[in-house]
Design a protein around this nucleic acid. Sequence first.
DNA 1: CGATAACTTGATGTGACTCAACTTAAGTGG
DNA 2: CCACTTAAGTTGAGTCACATCAAGTTATCG
Lengths: 257, 257
Amino acid sequence: MPVITAQSTAARCSKCDSCVLNHRAICRGASPEAVIELNRIGHIRSFTRGQIVQGQGEKSVIVGNIIDGVIKLSTANVEGDHHIVGLLFPSDFFGRVYAEESKFSYEAATDVTLCCMDRQAFERFLGKHPEVEHELLISKLDELDAMREWSSMITGHTTMQRVATFLYVLAKRSENASCDVHAPKTKVFTIPISRRDIAAYLGTTPETLSRNVQAISRRKICRIINAKTMELLDERALVKLAGQAEEDLEQLVQSTN
Amino acid sequence: MPVITAQSTAARCSKCDSCVLNHRAICRGASPEAVIELNRIGHIRSFTRGQIVQGQGEKSVIVGNIIDGVIKLSTANVEGDHHIVGLLFPSDFFGRVYAEESKFSYEAATDVTLCCMDRQAFERFLGKHPEVEHELLISKLDELDAMREWSSMITGHTTMQRVATFLYVLAKRSENASCDVHAPKTKVFTIPISRRDIAAYLGTTPETLSRNVQAISRRKICRIINAKTMELLDERALVKLAGQAEEDLEQLVQSTN
DNA sequence: CGATAACTTGATGTGACTCAACTTAAGTGG
DNA sequence: CCACTTAAGTTGAGTCACATCAAGTTATCG
């Protein structure tokens, strides 16, 4: 799991030099010359909610970084029910390098703005710039750790614990995302994806998810402002509900930053 | 998930040149000079079942390849119950590079023989040999895909389906492991780890696991020879029990090879 | 050969999925 | 801009798979 950056500045990202992601995405390891080259192969594209950026089983042609919005990484079963294996946030790298086809589908969970690159062009670029490939390796190693941690979280906890963990991570991330240190910490956070997607991500159903969220609201731990906005009221209680050591929770928040 | 190689030849692995892993592990991308260097920093060590190779939260000092045996990758909860997030087989790389501490514990699930390297020495080696680092990246990308696939498998299926999938993968891998093409395909395979560990891996309890395995036996799909050895009787039925497209199952087998 | 661990089997309670109805929000076109 | 349509989310009742607790059986090891 990944990052959320200041989204308001996304529009400035037409040049890598002024890109919000410049020092967060894999480009951070790139030399000035490399940045110029990236600037040449990358181009900004927008997708609307629901559009498939890269389909499961399709030839992997496009990779890049998310500038704004959320992409869901999912697998579709034979029975049609699809499971979400990851959520990608701004500054996250998406797509599959060094493979002919993508095993998962990358779908816009919200309207998204992406910095897209041709996969093979990017691979050639990596071949010429081992220092950037090194950064990519580091980020993939972290991603692997995060995936394992998430997997163990999903498998070993009750639905309520998963929901609490998810909300906690969202709340904390939103808190951290504010760059202005003097900004009042409102504890209000947005839930960027639908209940259906959250359920598929947490390995449950929309019904059970709803019941749990409502229960959290009834217990005055979070306040439901609307389906996509909530306010954290009692952090301590939420942590307790999550049923994990606070440090483990922090780690999950970190891994999404 | 990972590989199984011919284990009988493990003893010959005192030199990289004659190592069974030479063309399977990450060393496959190494030039002759690089192999010589690896030979210098690597050394063979044995651990007995239950020994911790690298503890959770400890400083990451040792990395390497498995020559023989199985290592389990696990996280321990605060409540003490630990969950297995991965199993590593011969030729698999273990340990965490480019991080000061290991988030997971690497524990010998069976007696193991390892080709161990000092983490920092190996990192210096990678710095000098981008082509090997490239191989490492590829293998980590595959591992990430496999982990996501596994995670979605775990989350979206019943316990019986998980057990069937696990047995299928073991059986198929054992079938493939036989290098002798003329060897009779006995369909007998060994279960390298304890029921307790399998349960922790599949996200269930030893009790439920036992019930499912016994049910599979009662239905003449597999024959239980002893706790650690089984024979596949009805492959088609096992696939059906697993409740997945055969191609998805094959992919899981592949990802462990 | 006794002790301890690993595994199996049984009985019971419950968390969460399913099916179904209802409510609210979001689009869409006249 | 408002009726209409469709999707998204909530709430309820019933069922079942699986965890838990408990006791028995079979391996493993000193």
